[in-house]
Design a binder for these strands. Structure first.
Ligand code: SF4
Ligand code: SF4
Lengths: 162, 162
DNA sequence: CTATTGTGGACCTGTGATATCCATAATAAA
DNA sequence: TTTATTATGGATATCACAGGTCCACAATAG
């Protein structure tokens, strides 16, 4: 259970694009050189980010990428969901097993009522709760907020030096 | 990014073992039949749970598995970590790239000082935070707590029927 | 028109999840 | 002590997917 390298790359690419004194339209070459990732692979990732509306891309001379919206509105969750997909953390694989009855109906021998609604899965409920906690946290952190913190740290270091 | 089926199976197996009126030493046959998973595969999972001290196993006639400690002390996090491993959610893949400087030192052109300590990674910091939130939540839910809730629900249903 | 730059498809490789089979070890009961 | 039973661990198979390369093509600015 670990985020893929693609997520790593995507985050770093966006952080680069979000850097204050950046001329618009950063080319794949610059990104590739900065991150140390092959152009071929990185372009796949950028393409995905574009399809999901995180960045804009323009081909042609002096083309390149730029953020499609302010860095403050690009959350970690956004990026992660683009790269890792939006499936849920836990998905039951055999909801018609004998086990299921025990947890959804707790062994009650009532005839199969298909109302299904108050008989909602408790395992999934726990896991969904976990997922929501995780997502909420990831939504509170944006590309901008990380950049801000980096700047703050830099400022403090400079201060100490003098 | 999804938990594996093994985790699903493990959770259900433990829920079965934790059931109140269970004779000790539940055999792999019973588990397999209840969960609807092959004996071969399920035994692998049980073996892993044993190696991590979640269950005890005794071979031989009338042998089987039982919880190694009270169900209230087996958390979801425990189970998930046994099955999914304990790697962290995010692991940097190229900490010596050009990017790294930007985020750890924020572009300061100071000579490479290898003190490393106040120059801690901000991306990892965010991700570690996310992981801790997730883990904390998963630690608050145990096999017992889920079982309790299932019982409570059952009780309410019975009440409504009368 | 042309050089430049992103897009998308085909393809390759290694790894890990899922799963089965079997030989062996351990154990309780007869 | 033997025997039937039950868990263990190694070997193996299959399959999907992460990670990555290459290339032909589309789009665009100048
Ligand atoms: S209780 Fe939930 S997780 Fe378990 S089998 Fe039913 S639906 Fe699936
Ligand atoms: S800033 Fe953090 S994530 Fe980025 S390269 Fe450095 S160590 Fe890795």
């Amino acid at each position: 259970m670990q985020y893929s390298k693609s997520t790593d790359y995507a985050l770093h690419a966006l952080l680069h694009l979000g850097h204050p004194e950046r001329h618009a339209n950063v080319g794949i070459k610059e990104l590739s050189a900065t991150l140390g990732v092959s152009e071929s692979y990185l372009s796949k990732i950028m393409s995905k980010l574009r399809q999901d509306g995180i960045v804009r891309a323009v081909p042609g001379v002096n083309g390149g990428y730029e953020l499609a919206r302010p860095a403050g509105r690009i959350t970690f969750l956004d990026v992660i969901q683009v790269m890792e997909g939006r499936e849920q953390l836990f998905e039951c694989s055999n909801s018609k097993s004998q086990q299921h009855q025990l947890l959804a109906d707790d062994g009650a021998d009532e005839p199969v009522r298909e109302r299904r609604g108050n008989g909602e899965c408790l395992v999934e409920k726990v896991m969904l709760g976990a997922q929501q906690h995780l997502h909420q946290y990831l939504q509170e952190h944006t590309i901008q907020s990380l950049l801000d913190e980096a700047f703050k740290r830099h400022f403090n270091l400079e201060g100490n030096k003098k």
